[in-house]
Design a binder for these strands. Structure first.
Lengths: 192, 192
DNA sequence: CGATTCTTTGAAAACAGTCAATCTGTGTGG
DNA sequence: CCACACAGATTGACTGTTTTCAAAGAATCG
């Protein structure tokens, strides 16, 4: 299963076989059943996670008990709570598996070891971090500038196939609208 | 003026005097008049920018010609378009000065040189990047989970003082609501 | 001081949210 | 393998919020 991760890494950076061995030595492959929690709010998060297969979601729960999905992580994406990891604070988020999934977990200490001893790896992680940051800014732009319908259409194109894998109410949550509104929007789009 | 930047850097990382000299040698201090553009959409962005004094805003313009503020950068903040910088693509954003401002500009090549030759600097930038990323995720959370009023109150506390420096219609834009709505929300809050 | 831009206010319309009921599909235990 | 239960999705009626458009009232800048 690790081969998926190796493929990802070696496609994105010039990692030698030796270097890969070092990386592989700190990788923990973990299977997750649908619905299984990886993190619950209040806990401390200490890993970096790479999704090999399946789909995870990270979400917060507000005072009214409503869930708000911040992120979906599918194959070849990273997941985790960087905030808790970086500041060593209790997490505000929950992470669970939407599908049966396989992930690679790397402990914070191990991960830091990798970035300090392997410059190529460090550079790779940097690029990924920047890419994620950019995507995040992009999302802010779409959320504040688009109507509900535009946001949904944008979701369909920016995350192709995801709409068929993820329950609709989670998509609605991700877009910041209610399931009912999403349902009506879909009907409206159909008519066109 | 560079001293502000030096203070910021040395407070956050163990940078020696020598190392600082190297950093300072690639810094370009630039004054900006209120309203002055730093970047307009379609252009390529090639700098990292640190705000010494004043306030910048980054915003997009949609098909209807409406501006959407993605970010305000005040003293001791970073600014720029990381997306254009990283991918070497034309920028989707505009950046201009809301107040007369002073910024430090570092060219991409110089910045990369700093991060590769000065490990401490690299690590500092990494931490800042992660912090920015986290803040960005945090903002997504507030936008999708809060009502207009909550978002405004949250803005008041998370960016203290800013509301008095920045025109209201820009704050409205930042929050993803119309100026009229913001005006009414303020009145409503006053009454409490 | 005049002109322009920003902010506020009002009224109507569009939009999204809430609550409740019904429909659908999936998975489980008998 | 079927029937049932249950969670998720849709629909309708209603409510509440936000936008839109237009106009008047501040504030700011040259």
């Amino acid at each position: 299963m690790l081969s998926v991760f190796k493929k990802y890494i070696t496609e994105k950076a010039a990692i030698s076989e030796n270097e890969w061995e070092i990386i592989a030595s700190v990788c923990i492959v973990k299977k997750l059943r649908k619905q299984q929690f990886l993190l619950q709010q209040g806990e401390f998060w200490r890993y970096n996670i790479f999704v090999i297969e399946g789909c995870l979601r990270r979400y917060s729960i507000d005072d009214k008990g409503i869930e708000h999905v911040i992120q979906f992580s599918t194959e070849n994406w990273w997941a985790g709570d960087r905030q808790s990891l970086l500041n060593e604070t209790p997490s505000k988020y929950n992470i669970d598996a939407i599908e049966n999934s396989v992930v690679v977990m790397i402990r914070k200490e191990d991960f830091d070891m990798l970035t300090t001893t392997l410059p190529v790896f460090n550079e790779l992680i940097n690029r990924i971090l920047q890419g994620g940051f950019n995507a995040s800014q992009e999302r802010i732009n779409t959320i504040i500038s688009m109507t509900a319908e535009q946001k949904y259409l944008n979701f369909l194109t920016s995350r192709p196939g995801l709409a068929n894998r993820v329950p609709r109410h989670m998509i609605a949550s991700y877009l910041g609208i209610t399931p009912e509104t999403l349902s009506r929007i879909k009907k409206q789009i159909m008519r066109k």
